[in-house]
Design a protein around this nucleic acid. Structure first.
Length: 177
DNA sequence: ATATTGATTGTTTAA
DNA sequence: TTAAACAATCAATAT
């Protein structure tokens, strides 16, 4: 789309308006050679799949989503992804498994969703084999009533405790060949 | 203007 | 099994 050229949002010319707390944001590494890893994902041949689901966020990322909000709330001046990343990772390691549990559960939930999306994605691909992906689904960005509204029953109330993983010591099997 | 980088850890896939 | 890519984010830098 065209971002139009009018002055949608005032930007630029105001860079010095807010001080950058992260001084790290001023010095990036040298211009690395192009294609650092896998051509940066998709340097060319970018298969733009609108319905292609991205990987499921791990528990850490789920936690980060919340953490970022909190972090930014307490550090509105800090605007550097690295700052949140470092702080988040640090705290993450500081948390015990019990605290990470809810995040893992959420992550697992998202993982299932990812699989579901992937399934639908693969299905679509199979159908429009000769045609580019995206054959009919997804067209209106207004309301894509798929008609699959089920599951998602939040039983937040822990009624029963399943197996609680006591990190006592589980030395059962160690991978080996 | 667009693409990429930076930084974290966890998952996932390729070889 | 090992290793590397990629998942989100947002401003800044690179092209």
């Amino acid at each position: 789309m065209k971002t139009a050229k009018g002055k949608d949002k005032v930007k630029t010319t105001k860079e010095a308006l807010k001080p950058v707390d992260d001084r790290k944001v001023g010095k990036r590494k040298a211009p690395a050679e192009k294609a650092t890893k896998r051509e940066t994902r998709k340097e060319k041949k970018a298969k733009k799949d609108p319905n292609k689901p991205k990987r499921a966020p791990s528990a850490f990322f789920v936690f980060l989503e919340d953490f970022r909000v909190t972090f930014k709330k307490e550090n509105p001046n800090v605007k550097a992804v690295s700052a949140v990343g470092k702080a988040g990772g640090q705290k993450w390691k500081s948390m015990s498994q019990a605290e990470k549990a809810p995040y893992e559960e959420k992550a697992a939930r998202r993982k299932a969703e990812y699989e579901k999306q992937m399934d639908a994605y693969n299905k679509n691909m199979e159908e429009g084999s000769d045609e580019s992906e995206k054959s009919r689904s997804e067209v209106n960005d207004e309301d894509e009533a798929s008609g699959e509204e089920e599951l998602l029953e939040k039983e937040a109330a822990g009624d029963d405790e399943e197996e609680e993983e006591d990190d006592d010591d589980d030395d059962d099997d160690e991978e080996e060949d």
